[in-house]
Amino acid sequence: MSKYHVSTTINGDPVEYLCEPEQTLLDVLRDELYLTGSKEGCASGDCGACSVLVDDRLVCACLALGAEMGGKKIETIEGMADGDELHPLQQKFLEHAALQCGICTPGFLVAAKSLLDRNPDPTEEETRYWLAGNLCRCTGYDKIIRAVLDTAAEMRSGK
């Protein structure tokens, strides 16, 4: 099978890869680049566990082809912390116990970051709807929503 050569940027670094035309961005991240922080929960865009940013836009990596990514800027959970400093959302998820099994956590964090990048002061309802494409079966969402709202408050106060 002939493969496609793609040059892209992932978490700020230039990356080149070869992929089959059917391979999704998620397949490429996980199976070719070993960036396994993005998870496959459904492969149909229904669970959000593979949430990544492509050119600053929140998308499911399972619903984009690897071949489409030439010249794009991709951000994954692996690029969220700044060196050894966690992103405030990551820190708040830990403090609020906003994860149990943790399989959905990378997707939630990427999606929540995208929310706060656009809206630094979301309401609970806005947060719940923004994150409705991220399924969590463990927590009942309570602590996740609290963690996001608390992060937003803290980031607004500039702490």
């Binding site: 865009g45 929140l58 998308v59 619903l63």
Partner: peptide, 9 residues
């Protein structure tokens, strides 16, 4: 149509 993620596409 779909989630925030789907809206991106």
């Amino acid at each position: 149509i779909g989630s925030t993620q789907i809206q991106g596409r």
